[in-house]
Design a binder for these strands. Structure first.
Lengths: 124, 124
DNA sequence: CTGTATCCTACAAGATACTG
DNA sequence: CAGTATCTTGTAGGATACAG
């Protein structure tokens, strides 16, 4: 954890070198809908269509969905496959790199389950 | 990972139940300076003064520093101790709960080291 | 030294309409 | 079906001045 302090956290730009990997990974996943999208793809465990995502995420707009998908794709977390067949469709799925994020996401979830509740009760 | 989709991601509010822990933990740590602050406290391994943080984080303003510290404190990640002695000072340190975040932060860092570079080379 | 109080700005996110 | 193109808005983050 001995990295320089980056000047542009949260900026959704392609990754720079010499940044703290934790900050970089955080940035990759920060976006109102990225974790929900990840969860949906992960749980489904098979490619999901654009319209499927739209249906599953009740209050997202198309513009935002496309934006977040493009960023996830750019960062190598998801994969986009377009089929122009009879009825055109686009399918999204996690890349192997994306799937491997589950290692720390699981740990995060565990930490959360253990500490979020104790906060709640502590504070009232 | 079978949680409902929260409506208020990124909102820096006290934690609600029934949310995805991953999203909650993400929210706890999202803030331009939270990871840098965490890193500084973690690496120092002993209480750090407000002015020390201010000096270490070159381009942060006092308002923002105080804000982020208050949120980290509210979420049980750091601890604030104020001494009114001859020369008043305030010291911040990680709580044990905060320190235990290192478990997933290390995994995140590992993932980052492995995948960020391969992205870079891939894309040029 | 350790903060508040104001004011300001940039940008992520959303609403809505249009398109290949 | 799977997107763009515009326009609007809320809010995180910052600059600066003042205060206990």
């Amino acid at each position: 954890m001995g990295y320089n302090v980056g000047e542009k956290w949260g900026e959704r730009m392609p990754v720079q070198l010499n940044e703290c990997p934790v900050e970089v990974v955080f940035t990759m996943l920060s976006g109102r809908w990225k974790i929900p999208i990840y969860r949906y793809l992960y749980n489904n465990n098979k490619p999901v269509r654009y319209s499927g995502l739209l249906r599953h995420l009740p209050s997202i707009s198309k513009k935002i969905l496309t934006e977040q998908l493009r960023e996830l794709e750019r960062d190598g977390i998801i994969e986009r496959k377009s089929y122009l067949e009879p009825r055109p469709r686009v399918e999204y799925s996690l890349t192997s790199s994306g799937s491997s994020m589950i290692v720390f996401l699981d740990k995060m979830s565990e930490w959360g389950e253990k500490h979020i509740l104790s906060n709640e009760t502590e504070h009232r």
